[in-house]
Every structure is written in structure tokens, then in C-alpha cells.
Design a protein around this nucleic acid. Structure first.
Lengths: 247, 247
DNA sequence: CTGTGTGGTTGACTTGGATCAAGCTTGCGC
DNA sequence: GCGCAAGCTTGATCCAAGTCAACCACACAG
């Protein structure tokens, strides 16, 4: 990489990182905004940052002043209990927001860690509130995003409270698949960014159980697994597995 | 009850049900608002409704157009899976909001059922958004409430994913106790509004397991149980139980 | 190309909580 | 006051997932 760039190159770079030119805008905060409104949001989303694999985007306890939109890459969030136990509360991919949990107490309540080299947009929260007082569409969409997070969490509670191991993993794979599809990737062929242990933590299972369930799915022809490479061979089969039998 | 009331009585009743005169205003949506702002919120929160024990406040799938504040009483929310399994996702008491999950899809995603005769305030959502575009404090507080719901859900995920049965129940009792305290009730002597089965559903356990855990807590002198009547004898003991050992 | 470390798989066994079953308590309608 | 239903408790047994342990598959540093 060169240190110097022509003005042309710089302006191109700026354009490329603005919401208005981001190909995730229909998944992310800008959904439904007009040209003019988008420009105003662009002013706000000025800070961008690279987060390398394994680095923290923020830590539990850190002061909250901005939410983050993932431009590219993959994150996990986890909470820590006083006694040392921890749990992954979610995996986030491009176009999704991070940090909503921090609004309530003005401090982050979980850690956000990059699972691959990632790029994020930082959105100062007080400015977002101020802009959403002016732009109804932005306000409403932001409320929808927060509400969607609550609904998602209820889904996870459901999974943890009522599903057995294989059902949990099937639900997890189908969810990932569906989110990859929404981003234009293959629904049936992808690489996991997280370890078996992280999947287990998220699903309330031990890594051995996750591994065994993967093997079982493979034996039964639902998927092909090779380490982190997953191919879904039988979506219907996984769906059937997912709501098979009550606990 | 008489059918007719004097003007005096009616106006008194109206005053009594306004946010400005509600003794829950410091727990509920009006937190931090000025007199003038409170009056504007009062205009909005005009519809009130009684919900008898066992009745639905709303059902999953129903159109969403308002959120609800509990004025008195006790609710549970539950989600239903296609295959018939269901799970209680939360218990709500006076001063807490219901229906936030409905914003995302404009339809409720869970059922809200009264566990005792209750009274709720209905807050038309589009009007709330419109008012919070004018009143910064209201906007910010509403965001905090939504965020708090997300944090709470993460706590439940933690509980379901990493805690064993007795830890879950201890955490549940301490949480109830703390919420009763915030409402001016005894932290150590209260009646459960829900059955063992509902507690179990919420905690991802079977009712027998809940019952056994109660008995064990009693044997060990942490609490005294008599059906739904709970007395906490040893808060520290319960806390110790809560973060005892990893799964 | 070789050693080392991290992550994944598989097997043997153990166990916490589910399941099944019986009996008890409380409250309500008649 | 009696009968019945809903909810709670307790015991015996079972099983899904956890634990412990050995081994395999890469990736990467030297």
C-alpha cells in the first residue's frame, strides 16, 4: 500500500465507504431512506475502523457512546459471569448492528470480538438519536432493528429452553444459511467462522456434543462437513430435524 | 358498584389514571420527564383496560399498534413453536412494558396473558414515536427500556445456557425479590403468581425439577415455601447457590 | 520437512434432570 | 360438607448430554 494517494483516489475511497454507496444499505440502518436523508446519515457515520481477527471491538464494562454497523467480517458477542463462566450471546455478520445492549446503562454489557478481519462503521449514539428525531423513517427503522434483536433473543431462549442438541444445531445451521442467502452468498455452501466450542457455548452444549451432532448429520446425509466447511445437502431434512420431538 | 357517578368522582378517576399521578412513573415510561412533558404523555396514554386473570392482552400474530404499560397486576409472555412446544419468555409486573417485540414485524410475536386481574395502559406506538421525536428525554428513555430488555434476555440466555437447575431457580427468586423491592414490596416475603409449570417453562426445566429444587432450598434453610407463598430466609445463601459451579 | 499447538473427532462412562407414577393439598361448585 | 380438578410433592427409573481421555488434522514457525 502506498502512503500517498491522488485526490481522485481519496474521494473514490470516501464515496466507497459512505452508507449511500454501501451495498449493505438495504440490510443495515439506512433501509428506506431517501437520497437526502442518506446524505445526512453519511455525515454521521464518519468513523470507520478495521478490527483484526481476535481483537475486541469493545469490552463489557466499557463506556458506551456509539453503536457499530458491520461493513465486512464476522463477530461474536459474549457475556461473562462473575464466577468465570461465559456464554456466546450471538454471532453477527455484515449489515448487522452491534452494541445495542449498551444503551440501557451507558456501558457495554458484553464483549464483541472479531472472528475474522473485519471492518465496522461507528455511529455516535447521541447523534443517531438526534438525527432520528428529524428523520421519521430512520427512527422507525432503528426501533424495528432493536425490536428484531428482542425477537431474535426470544428465539434463542426457545432453543435453549425446549430443544435437544440436534434440534439446536439444525436451527443454528438453517439460521446461518438464511442470513448468508440474504447477503447474496450460497445458502448451502459456506465456511463457519467460529469454533465448535463457540457454537457449543451459543447453543448451551459442549463442543463434543456439537461435533457428534455434525457427524450424525453427515451420516444421515443432511450435510457434508469438513472442518469448518459446511455443505447443506438436505434443507428439508434439517427442518424436519429441527422440530422433531418435544423434550 | 353504581352505574352513575358525580362529575367530581369521574374527574378524580381520570386524574388518578394519568401518568402524572401514577406512582409507577419513576419505573415506567415517564421517567425523567418534566411536568409539561408529562402532560403531553398523558394525552397519549388515554386508553386503559382491565385484563382478568387468564385473559390474553394480545396474541402472537395479532397486529401490533400499541405497546402496553402494566399499571397493576402480573403477566407472562410465551412463544409457541409450530410443533406445539411453547416457552414462557418472561414475567412482567407493574411499571414494566409489554409488546416491544411487535415493533419489528408490526405483529406480535408472543402471547401476553394476565396471571392475576390486571390493569394496563395502552400507548399507541406511532404516537409514541411522534412524541419522542419532540421530547428528547422520552426518546432516550424509551431506547434505554428497549436496550434493557435486550440485556435481560441475554441474562436469561446465560441462565439457560450455563446454569444448573438449582442455580436457575435461585437466580429467578433473587430477580423476583429485587423487582418486588423496587416496587416497595417486601424483598423476602411474597406470593408467586405463576405455577411451577410456568416457572419451569421459563427456566427450561420440568415442573418436578422446580418442585424438588424448592424443597431442597427449604431443607437447607434458604427459603420457606408453602405452595405459592415464598419467604427468603437467607439471601446470601441463595446468591452463593447461584454462582456455585459451572456445568 | 518437521515439531508444536490449536481445533476437531470419537469412544467409554457418568450423571443431572426428564419421565412415569402415585399420593397429597387446596379451593370451588353443588 | 363432599366430590372433583388443578396444582404440588416425592419416589423410582431412564437417558441425553456431560466428562474424561485418546487420537487425528491441519496450520505455521523454524
Amino acid at each position: 500500500m502506498t502512503q500517498e494517494k491522488s485526490t481522485q483516489e481519496i474521494s473514490l475511497a470516501v464515496i466507497k465507504t459512505a452508507c449511500s454507496n454501501c451495498n449493505l444499505r438495504e440490510l443495515c440502518l439506512p433501509l428506506g431512506l431517501s437520497e437526502v436523508e442518506l446524505d445526512r446519515l453519511d455525515d454521521l457515520v464518519s468513523t470507520r475502523r478495521r478490527v483484526k481477527r481476535g481483537e475486541y471491538l469493545y469490552r463489557a464494562g466499557a463506556e458506551f457512546d456509539a453503536i457499530f454497523a458491520i461493513r465486512s467480517g464476522f463477530f461474536k458477542t459474549d457475556v461473562l459471569l462473575e464466577d468465570g463462566r461465559d456464554q456466546v450471546t450471538g454471532f453477527q455478520m455484515a449489515g448487522e448492528l452491534l452494541g445495542l445492549d449498551g444503551i440501557s446503562s451507558e456501558h457495554h454489557t458484553c464483549n464483541a470480538i472479531a472472528l475474522e478481519d473485519s471492518e465496522i462503521c461507528s455511529i455516535p449514539f447521541s447523534q443517531l438519536e438526534s438525527l432520528s428525531r428529524e428523520i421519521h423513517t430512520l427512527q422507525h427503522h432503528f426501533h424495528k432493528v432493536m425490536s428484531r434483536e428482542i425477537v431474535r433473543d426470544h428465539g434463542v431462549m426457545m432453543l435453549l429452553g425446549t430443544m435437544r442438541a440436534e434440534e439446536r444445531l439444525a436451527a443454528f445451521l438453517l439460521n446461518l444459511s438464511q442470513r448468508f442467502t440474504a447477503r447474496g452468498y450460497s445458502h448451502a455452501d459456506f465456511f463457519l467462522r467460529m469454533t465448535r466450542e463457540e457454537i457449543g457455548s451459543y447453543l448451551g452444549l459442549k463442543l463434543e456434543t456439537v461435533s457428534r451432532a455434525f457427524s450424525r448429520f453427515q451420516e444421515e446425509g443432511h450435510i457434508a462437513v469438513q472442518q469448518k466447511h459446511i455443505r447443506i445437502l438436505n434443507v428439508a431434512g434439517l427442518k424436519a430435524l429441527m422440530n422433531h420431538q418435544p423434550i
